[in-house]
Design a protein around this nucleic acid. Sequence first.
DNA 1: ATTTAAAATTAGACTGATTCTAAATATATG
DNA 2: CATATATTTAGAATCAGTCTAATTTTAAAT
Lengths: 140, 140
Amino acid sequence: MYDTITVSRQLKAAGVHPTAQRIAIYHYLLSQAKHPTVEDIKAWVDQNFPKMSLATVYNTLRTFVEAKLVKELKLPHSSKTVYDTNVRNHHHFFDEDSGELIDLDPAVVTLDPALKRKYLITHIHVLLRGTQRRKYDDHA
Amino acid sequence: MYDTITVSRQLKAAGVHPTAQRIAIYHYLLSQAKHPTVEDIKAWVDQNFPKMSLATVYNTLRTFVEAKLVKELKLPHSSKTVYDTNVRNHHHFFDEDSGELIDLDPAVVTLDPALKRKYLITHIHVLLRGTQRRKYDDHA
DNA sequence: ATTTAAAATTAGACTGATTCTAAATATATG
DNA sequence: CATATATTTAGAATCAGTCTAATTTTAAAT
């Protein structure tokens, strides 16, 4: 689904020179990673790329963020920044059991219209935390 | 309004031994500070307390958080943790002009009821960012 | 193809916020 | 008062992330 040529083309389309390092990282982000930290990315890279500096991982992610290929998420559930290939507007749910981060549609949150009269809102950050319900859970 | 005796009593009521350092910091938090960082607190302390270690500021804040006297806020608008004496449930608006953080009533945010069927939500973090409208601003 | 310029990568030093350590001091209890 | 316990302290250590300056790669122009 994501061969090198395709990934390379997507990088070019975003104005990012497709170097071997960038192709590798973007390929990983698109195909395997779900909200990885730099640590996660570096660990994958160390297993799947001849040799890459940690600085390159950081540089590459910054480049991707600037090119709007990924979103950088600094969420209060962790001290580590995570990256998201879902660049559309959305929110997150942090599953306290699994540690997993789940994307939520922005429509699940509604703001009081009175707020818009008082504030000009440019960003809405929402993180919900909790656990996922199993079937037949009581949800009073 | 917040004399030493009162502050001291409040600390005791929360199960926190009222040492001079703790009284000073809690007094500052209650009376002058609005969403201060550790840096802000240390700066005030350096002006208003004979001598206090930075470690004590951190220790004291941890103690207060554990005693639920203050909330610790790690918001994505800054790399610095801020502290809030408003321990009720609430959200925040970050004013990008002034850098000010404004408390919002939790009622300004409504979650889709379908979410509650899928998730058991224990925490709701909301940070809005933008600017404050002046009177007569168009708010289409 | 070769030179030259620009961009990307690199290792390792550095920073800033926070935590840890272990000693010193203060407080509470028997 | 003696002694245990809690608190404070200075400074070292940690951790995520950034910066620096040198090297390597890539692109552009002869």
